[in-house]
Amino acid sequence: MNDILKIADKEFSSRLFTGTGKFSSNQLMSQALIASESELITVALKRVDVDNEQDRMLQSIMRPNVNLLPNTSGVRNAKEAVFAAQLAREALETNWIKLEIHPDPKYLLPDPIETLKAAEELVKLGFVVMPYIHADPVLCKRLEDVGTQCVMPLGAPIGTNKGIKTVDFLEIIIEQSNVPVIVDAGIGSPSHAAYAMELGADAVLVNTAIAVSQNPIEMAKAFKMAVEAGRMAFNAKLATIKKHAEASSPLTSFLN
């Protein structure tokens, strides 16, 4: 079955997006990213030495079929985010930007107000904007209205590996969204990723759970398989979970 994910003008056959932080070496990161078969890899612009074409981290990521997704990690407001995005476009030659605005450096929770402001401006400037946000259905619609090409609600606070804690809100977001929904943070194990995909998420983004695993390469493979399994299950339509027992003799048959 042809199950391609389209975001803006790009098509993805892998629905597992990955990140580049926290790995114990660039070499291991490179191998894990290859094993994940991910086609969209996010990198913090602040980690890139933009003046150095030989930047080792970038070299460890780039291969055919891989799209670089710079992110604005480190900015605290819309103004800084717009500046960072422009810097990223110039330095990395892509108009894709993962918009992350977390003024709180402790839990790295996204600022919804600044994110909406920045998204609106960046769309006008011609960016493909992928905003990292709370699992807030109204905010997702507002972002869609200003032209973001997807939304990236969190499953749990970033880096916590706690899984899909925002399930009730994600279900609403998925139900209502006209743009792809990518579950971004908190996914700690392949079963969490599969679960998000079963709910109908269009993709997931995983970093910590792969990077900090004892064996990042095997873990990357496990995530790849889990995302595929979850997507396949979603497409195959899960059997419904029955909330009530169904009496074998209908209670209303006397009405007939």
């Binding site: 114990s24 070496s25 660039n26 612009l45 604005t72 480190g74 500046f83 960072a84």
Partner: peptide, 17 residues
């Protein structure tokens, strides 16, 4: 650091202002 499985990070900031 590398021999102990730790990546030394040299750059992790950009002044976006």
């Amino acid at each position: 650091l590398s021999s102990q499985g730790l990546e030394p990070v040299w750059k992790d900031w950009e002044a976006f202002q």
